[in-house]
Design a protein around this nucleic acid. Structure first.
Length: 816
RNA sequence: GCCCGGGUGGCGGAACUGGUAGACGCUACGGACUUAAAAUCCGUUUCGCGAAAGCGAGUGCGGGUUCGAUUCCCGCCCCGGGCACCA
């Protein structure tokens, strides 16, 4: 045998076959069952990294498996091409973002092909191209007309030195990443999409997403944060307007000992007008960083406003405070504080010496001390006059009814979810199609003037957006009155592009509409794969967009992704691979050294897809070694020449065992890939089968026939994972077809039958022996044989057998 | 801080519905082949005691349920992801 495994040649040959036969290009065929297999498209950073290799390989394995199930499989690829890294590269190297991005795309496309991914490249979508983003702009103008987008002031991180808005990741310890200047909060007008109008549907829809991981659904549920409560009005001393608060705990109303408003609240501003200390504190609150994690962990600060609200039941004065943990954007921007029954209120009250009152007691009568720790569970209401003794539900209803009848409140449903701010003060993004006119206010760009093309030949300095220095871009006529007007220079959040690209793959070349009838054939996506870090934002925005597109008659689907697989990160030395840590491994170097199949095999073998994967150079060696063994085993077998037809009835025990192993393996791998997505165990099972073939003596013609059956199976079972070597070995085994066009093997039930099986015997739950019994032996026989075992009898002798548990086909447990 | 995951040999992991803990692979060690090395092949590899048969311990920590718990329940510890302008 002088045929050695040369991955380079084998892989070239397989790729040439796939290219020549155009086997991954698919059109709509209503007679075939479609399967749309999609991966979250990558940002074209210019460098293929291990995370890409992992997620694209997972998706490719699923696509190839489904193809072998006889499905009509679409697997497209594209580029999430707008984003900050292009601007950063431009600042650093003086290359325009467009040029940098297009070059990166060229480089990465070649790398993907080298890995053997079966994409229909005719459908490639690149989000920074006007042919793509024009439809995004078009939909935005339609949303504008329908009132689903609006403009309001909102806060950004402002770098006073670079005169630029910073992303949260560009703010390090409160300072600008480049300038090191203290970052300020600045309020500017920005565009928002009304995702809250779909909050209920987005929440309810999760109940029907059976193909999504529970963890992702749970995260989205918590993110939407639906809560039922009551909005209550408190009169304020010397004020016309009452103060409105939202609470989910009206049962604790009598425990209110103070109230707190946000720094931006009108009452706070009013009180600050003649109080310099207060004004300074409010300014300080406004400077803090906007991230929720910081809001929650920072010191809870506040100051009294010097005015009081009137408790609506008791008529007593309740002091008003301004506090840095109250958000203007959630609820009414004011809260009633019940320090006896809320942890945060308690912490604040203790710190500022505010009274704490108990108004709820545990239902089980256990002792609590609300002065020490807030009691937040539902219980029985106490110290609360007319609602005393009520449960949470009763008190909720009583308070709600009382306030509703008095016209001072109403039952309300509140969401944690906020509307989606889509404005970015950046250059490298889709221009927001709006024109500002002094007379006509904000006007959408008319359809016949779309797309608003982003100028690509620019110089990026890092100080402001280049669009603001380009009169040829922003000087336009008002579409309504014709007077000179100004074009919006902000661009869209890049999540907008990624919220609908999956639909565009169905009709990537359509230049008359956003989507066409082909969308109905392919959507929804049958299998979506991507990083768990996208569990909330990208996946929620995409669900929102799907509903918008449906409501505009562009799609018939309620949800975009039927099944979701979230894959874990690739780690090295226990940490995420990143340039900062200097622990990256270049996939290209490995592909050059070992070939694509080895890299694919290691990635799929090292861990199940949902878990983090620890990188191992030795593991790659192991994968390479296995492929060599695989290659050599098939070549050695092929050298035995002609194989007789398999006759299952004439097999000896060893041959029968190997044949059983073959069919067990087919069953296991089918289940592992098709249902469980545990590619690692599928590979382990295939390795076991190959090991079994290598141990077989293969001296008789029937032994060779059984070996052939086993090897045929291994080649097909592994072909989704290591498609190149499988393509070659399938030919070596004498087939004239290609695995990519083969149907998935089926297992033979009759080959799985066994005459005798091994049963484990325990005494008091401890393993004491193993017995061999007939497969159809009854419980009594099994128990008798168990007691007869030499080692078992040692532990049972002289003791009373209290109970014998027989689990058919598995074990016997004797309790003494 | 809140939400969602995870924790099993020297390492990656397996054990799918409560039923043999450590499949498969890596590393290390021993052996074969070789002038030698690499490659390849064979064997050993959770820890402790034992010549062996076997015995004891063991799935982050502490409790509980059960004939039986990596798996279910309660309380903790540690690590990772997300937290709305990274994508």
């Amino acid at each position: 045998m002088d045929v050695t495994y040369e991955p380079e040649l084998v892989e070239q040959k397989a790729r040439a076959f796939w290219d020549d036969t155009r086997c991954f290009e698919v059109d709509e065929d209503p007679d075939k069952e479609k399967f749309y297999c999609l991966t979250m498209f990558p940002y074209p950073s210019g460098h293929l990294h291990m995370g890409h290799v992992r997620v694209f390989t997972i998706s490719d394995v699923i696509a190839r498996y489904q193809r072998m199930q006889g499905k009509h499989v679409l697997q497209p690829m594209g580029w999430d091409a707008f984003g900050m890294p292009a601007e950063n590269a431009a600042i650093k190297r003086g290359v325009p973002p467009a040029k940098w991005t297009y070059q990166n795309i060229e480089d990465m496309r070649g790398q993907f092909d080298r890995l053997g991914y079966g994409y229909d490249w005719r459908r490639e979508v690149t989000t920074c191209k006007p042919e793509y983003y024009r439809w995004e702009q078009w939909l935005f103008t339609k949303l504008f007309e329908k009132g689903l987008v609006y403009r309001k002031n909102s806060i950004v991180n402002w770098d006073p030195v670079d005169q630029t808005v910073l992303a949260n990741e560009q703010v390090i310890d409160g300072r600008g990443w480049r300038s090191d200047a203290l970052v300020e909060r600045r309020e500017i007008p920005q565009w928002f999409m009304k995702i809250t109008a779909y909050a209920d549907e987005l929440l309810e829809g999760l109940d029907h997403l059976d193909g999504w991981p529970d963890s992702v659904k749970s995260m989205q549920r918590n993110w939407i944060g639906r809560s039922e409560g009551v909005e209550l009005s408190f009169d304020v001393e010397d004020e016309e307007e009452p103060l409105s608060v939202f609470t989910t705990r009206p049962d604790t109303l009598m425990g209110v000992t103070y109230m707190a408003v946000a720094a931006e609240h009108p009452l706070a501003n009013k009180a600050a007008s003649d109080n310099a200390d207060l004004a300074a504190f409010i300014e300080e609150c406004k400077k803090m960083h906007a991230a929720e994690a910081e809001m929650e962990t920072m010191e809870k600060k506040g100051m009294p406003l010097g005015i009081s609200a009137i408790h609506p039941i008791t008529g007593q004065k309740v002091p008003l405070w301004v506090a840095n943990f109250v958000l203007m954007g959630y609820g009414t921007g004011a809260v009633m504080a019940v320090p006896g029954h809320d942890y945060r209120d308690q912490e604040f009250a203790v710190k500022h010496g505010l009274p704490i009152v108990q108004v709820v007691e545990p239902l089980d009568g256990s002792e609590i001390d609300v002065m020490k720790e807030a009691y937040v569970d539902y219980g029985r209401v106490v110290n609360s006059g007319f609602i005393d003794g009520m449960t949470f539900e009763e008190a909720f209803a009583a308070i709600a009814e009382k306030f509703e009848s008095e016209g001072r409140g109403k039952r309300t449903i509140n969401y944690r979810l906020r509307d989606w701010g889509v404005s970015r003060q950046r250059y490298w993004g889709t221009p927001i199609p709006i024109i500002y006119c002094d007379d006509c206010d904000a006007q959408p760009v008319p359809e016949d003037q779309l797309p608003v093309v982003l100028p690509e030949d620019v110089e990026v300095t890092g100080v402001g957006s280049p669009l603001k220095d380009m009169p040829e871009f922003y000087e336009v006529a008002c579409p309504k009155c014709g007077k000179p007007a100004r074009r919006e220079t902000d661009t869209f959040d890049t999540f907008v592009e990624s919220s609908w690209y999956f639909s565009r793959y169905a009709s990537p070349d359509c230049d008359t509409a956003m989507l066409d009838e082909r969308e109905a054939y392919w959507m929804p996506v049958d299998q979506y794969t991507g990083g768990v870090e996208h569990a909330i934002l990208h996946l929620l925005y995409s669900r929102f967009y799907q509903k918008l597109m449906r409501d505009f008659g562009l799609s018939g689907a309620d949800e975009p992704f039927t099944n979701l697989l979230t894959q874990g990160m690739v780690l090295k030395d226990g940490a995420k691979m990143s340039k900062n840590k200097g622990n990256t491994v270049d996939p290209q170097a490995l592909i050059d050294k070992f070939g694509a199949d080895t890299v694919r095999l290691f990635m799929m073998f090292a861990a199940p897809p949902e878990q983090a994967l620890e990188w191992s150079d030795d593991g790659v060696q192991g994968a390479s070694r296995f492929l060599k063994r695989f290659w050599n085993a098939v070549q050695a077998h092929a050298a035995k020449g002609d194989v007789p037809a398999l006759d299952p009835d004439s097999l000896n025990d060893a041959e029968r065992d190997l044949r059983r192993k073959t069919h067990q393996t087919i069953a296991k791998v089918s289940d592992d890939i098709g249902r469980r997505y545990t590619f690692n165990t599928a590979i382990a099972a295939s390795m076991e089968l190959l090991n079994a073939v290598n141990r077989s003596d293969g001296s008789s013609p029937q032994a060779v026939a059984v070996e052939r059956e086993a090897l045929d199976a291994v080649v097909l079972l592994l072909s989704p994972i290591v498609p190149h070597i499988s393509h070659e070995l399938w030919e070596v085994l004498g087939h004239t077809t290609a695995p990519v066009n083969e149907l998935w093997p089926e297992f033979d039930e009759s080959a799985l039958e066994q005459d005798t099986i091994e049963i484990v015997v325990q005494v008091n739950g401890k393993l004491r022996g193993r017995i061999s019994v007939a497969a159809d032996a009854d419980k009594g026989t099994v128990a008798r044989l168990a007691l007869a075992d030499e080692n078992v009898s040692r532990f049972v002798e002289g003791k009373d057998v209290q109970k014998t548990i027989v689990v058919p086909g598995r074990l016997v447990n004797i309790v003494v």
